[in-house]
Nucleic acid binder design. Sequence first.
DNA 1: TCCTTATATTTGCCTATGCAACTATTGCCT
DNA 2: AGGCAATAGTTGCATAGGCAAATATAAGGA
Lengths: 146, 146
Amino acid sequence: MAMHGDKKIGFLLERTTRIAKLSFTKAFKKLNVDITPEQWIVLDKLDLKGEMSQKEIGNESFKNAPTISRIIDNLVRKGYVSRTSEESDRRKTAISLTQEGEKVIQLCRQEVDALRDLSWNNLSDQDYEDFNRIIDQIFLNFEGYN
Amino acid sequence: MAMHGDKKIGFLLERTTRIAKLSFTKAFKKLNVDITPEQWIVLDKLDLKGEMSQKEIGNESFKNAPTISRIIDNLVRKGYVSRTSEESDRRKTAISLTQEGEKVIQLCRQEVDALRDLSWNNLSDQDYEDFNRIIDQIFLNFEGYN
DNA sequence: TCCTTATATTTGCCTATGCAACTATTGCCT
DNA sequence: AGGCAATAGTTGCATAGGCAAATATAAGGA
């Protein structure tokens, strides 16, 4: 395998992740919706799956417990989700979308999809498949190191 | 072009970027060097290019001025770089590696290279080229949105 | 039942990053 | 020269995220 020095993996990932976040941030601002990309991820998960515990949200979005806890704090403060202590296991809190939260989903869904499609401009279906495969493998490689 | 909903670009990027940073963080810890991946990026740039202004460092690493300012603050506090006001233009500060900073580079270089190679395990040279091309195009696509 | 361990969440402290506002210089134009 | 715009850097305030420690609750074993 050849050298990988000319373009640095960390740099490529970091730079593109950052501009992706910025783009989504601008999209929400354009729509006059006061959420961040991370908050969108949580709202979107709740929309797809319904009520979830913070632990479940964390597992599915690969974020740790403190991070999820604080993102939920902010979403509760904005009135987009609500916390309810679960009866069956009072360690858990059930997180669910409020009506306001559902409204936010409605407002943003189309633009989010459009932006995701835009990110694949000038790239083929084959590129899409390759990218998914490669970035998953890179993830696994790092996972093995940890 | 087909739908891109099943795997979400933001998620793929974010997850892999995060584990990459974590891996580098652990590598530095293993070496008993108290730097972060971001601080490494700056030290590495300075090692390659010699004295640079904060603006130059920011341009090359795609970080904004406040971020660079604070990363440099931390590196100065640790004694790995020094700030000198430039004579020709006193708005600029010349940042340079200290001897301690050079020592850090020496200590880490090998492990950083090894980790970068490891990230390409089970992937071909073609994959490497494809990934670079695709992620660059994704970056450009988002850049057009902004 | 009592004790130990595991799990879910929260909080404190730190770095990185974004935006906006502010300071200090330099450059340019009239 | 005088004044205004551009440039380099810093600082305040916010979110995200990492680690470690603390709290609350549940589960399992002696």
